[in-house]
Design a protein around this nucleic acid. Sequence first.
RNA 1: GCGGACGUGGCGAAACAGGUAGACGCAAGGGACUUAAAAUCCCUCGGCCGAUUGGUCAUGCGGGUUCGAGCCCCGCCGUCCGCACCA
Length: 876
Amino acid sequence: MASERYNPRKVEPNWQKKWNEDNVFVTDNADPRETYYVLEMFPYPSGRIHIGHVRNYAMGDVVARYKRARGYNVLHPMGWDAFGMPAENAAMQNKVHPKDWTYENIATMRNQLKSMGLSLDWTREFATCDVEYYQRQQHLFIDMLEKGLVYRKQSKVNWDPVDMTVLANEQVIEGRGWRSGALVEQRELTQWFFKITDFAQDLLDALDTLDGWPEKVRLMQKNWIGRSEGMMVRWDISDGADKAGDHEELTVYTTRPDTIFGASFMAISADHPLAKEAAKHDEKVAAFCEETRRAGTSLAALETAEKKGVDTGIRVRHPFDENWELPVYVANFVLMDYGTGAIFGCPSGDQRDLDFARKYGLPVTAVVMPKDGDAATFEIGDEAYTDDGVMINSRFLDGMSTDDAFEAIALKLEADVVRGAPRGTRKVNFRLRDWGISRQRYWGCPIPVIHCDDCGVVPVPKSDLPVQLPDDIDFEKPGNPLDRHATWRHVACPQCGKDARRETDTMDTFVDSSWYYTRFTAPHEDAPTDPAIADRWLPVDQYIGGIEHAILHLLYSRFFTRAMKATGHVGHDEPFKGLFTQGMVVHETYRLGGSGTSGRWVSPSEIRIEETDGARKAFLVDTDEEVAIGSIEKMSKSKKNVIDPDDILATYGADTARFFVLSDSPPDRDVVWTEAGVQGTFRFVQRIWRLISEAAPALADIEAKAGGDGKALEISRAAHKTLKAVAADLDGLAFNKAIARIYELVNILAQPLSEVDKADDELKGALKQASLFLTHCFAPMMPHLAEECWQTLGAEGMIAMAAWPKHDEALTADNEVVLPVQVNGKKRAELTVARDADQESIKQAVLELEAVVRALDGKEPRKIIVVPQRIVNVVV
RNA sequence: GCGGACGUGGCGAAACAGGUAGACGCAAGGGACUUAAAAUCCCUCGGCCGAUUGGUCAUGCGGGUUCGAGCCCCGCCGUCCGCACCA
């Protein structure tokens, strides 16, 4: 009785329709069951989904469907990270309005996601470019402004000359804009900033509580926040005061006050006020400062830049010796925006300082030596000694440990009061800077403030929100169209009513994604959030996305949650309890041309692969020309190694695509997309359908239950073991392992199912239960096939709503175990014993084994180690 | 330079807590069915020796701890990732 081949193109839309009609995935906030919030990072509507989305959303959907089966009230929403540069670029290139471009892309991608059969609550969908969303964001901005969490300041900023906008520090990668790849320039602009540094310590401390996050991400954030403990130390200007203007002293930040007796010079940034003052009086200093500023911060410039400086002629006095004068240099390696923009140079303890001192002939005094060193002979050569150790050449510190010396110096500097303040104060410093959010772009959330000549910066009253983006804009010229708009920026001051100007900068799009997960909990609420509902759902139980957001989005969101708490919008601190960073989908590359390095890239759809005796060769389908098979790489348009999910969904269906991207590789690692692999998965789909649909009629009136003995018991054991193991694997997000177990069970069931006609009722009952268990196991990954099997087996309702069955613990443990038997650690035999056999009888049985007797060769065993249910080792 | 992760068959991988290394899948080879192909089913599949049940080597390399090490410790080598003048 041959059944029809499983046809996903016919079956999948039916079930998607049914799920939709029955509102199976619509989540009720009032549902009293325990909540579970699973979320995948929402996509940017670039045009079409790519295979990476398929993997990301397949993982989230498995979790959502599994948790639903486990009885949770699951929230699994979807939305669109819809503001951003590409829409404006498209507008400029194709004369299409960013709004139209964005919403059309969303429509396309929504359909694509729907064809994947994701169990999403689409009633909560929104795009961040919806007025209804960004209006609430403006509301949050104003609340944060009032709380002092937003401020405006002039500062040196990263300017992307291609995108013509400012970038946050987090968005500059190796000196280049994260999106445009252009070398970033430094400019002085007035910008809006979020006070993320207010939370620096808390963001750091709370990392320890995030045990559902990958260690790697926590570490990256820790390094990014970059806490260091040191001291601010004031050095009096002793000479050259004519060049120092009003400055009486120079304050430096140091983490190594213990090395203060190794100081040999002071170095300040070219942007330091003292340097600017000195430049007024000294052309050489002025020229050097100019040159340093121009060299900029590009990666190449930094890497190769020699440590250079110029003597300002200014001298400072050592805090512990009034006869000790040190020169003040402007140096190209001192950053203005870390610490005070000034340092004291201790060449023996810092490689940079050492290079600098050697270059300018400054003294090098060793002040720390290794614990077992000899103070009489210890010297610094070409390498600084940066480790902890014992103090030398440091007067009252000599002989102390580095830590004790720090403490001793700190106490003295704190006690020494000069001009009404201590000479030195302890100071914790962070690498983290405030988050600059002003962007000179159109397609973003307008910053809701108004500039009035009389009243200054005035927030837009909440009753006047939203500040809506105008639709009539032109992209003929580069730069921000809002600046050029005829009327939009002209507005009355909300305070005095006089003519005033709107802020024309928009917010960084990372602001949009910093709270969308909160909005999903009450997407139609008038206020930005309903705090009670938000706190019920949040933090997100399982967040899934790419590692590329380890710092940017994830750190911003952690800040935003704290800021929303401070402004009363939520009651929790952390946005994401569990975080999972999934790997990419990668693919082989193909290239024409014999050398393999010069010809054009060829897409996988243009070639066919031939394989004989392990030798793989690729040929162009059209011309039979041989194509070089290249390395496996991240899918990219330029290398053409891209697989279009639409093609896969059309050819194999959603279940196959979902199952394949989850199988084989662990989810946090990259998975290689291969045509052969997908076909293998598709064959497996067919195999399951064939086995179940052909056996179903014989099982129709049979009660599903575990077998009591013989073959039936064996089947039941396998089914219950698999059910238990798959549950554990899904709990641990080990999708690849769950899939391996599903294959195993199918292999076990294949033969008996195909011979079900010969089975007695007991065996049939066991097979029916096993088939239902199997269906439960793969349902989270292949939901359409599961519904079809579920129905065919005559089960009630839809499996999407069915509870995960309970396994029988007794059936998951075998009565007999096979113990490997080692002699001196080498396996020589196996012994089958009752699971609860006692040690003595096992020892007895082992010594009677022929292989053991042979291996012992007449010798007396010294010891027999029996690890219950594991192994036996006979030691001679 | 600093920090981190990883290294297992032809390939993707598995191995719970130190206890039979290679489950499961892909590829490959052989066979059955078929006029043929597809589909399906069966067998083989880390190396070497031998006869299928045996022996031996084997988890990047070299040591160590242990009755027993892919897993723990020390030292190398390699690959990948993050940060990068942070005082």
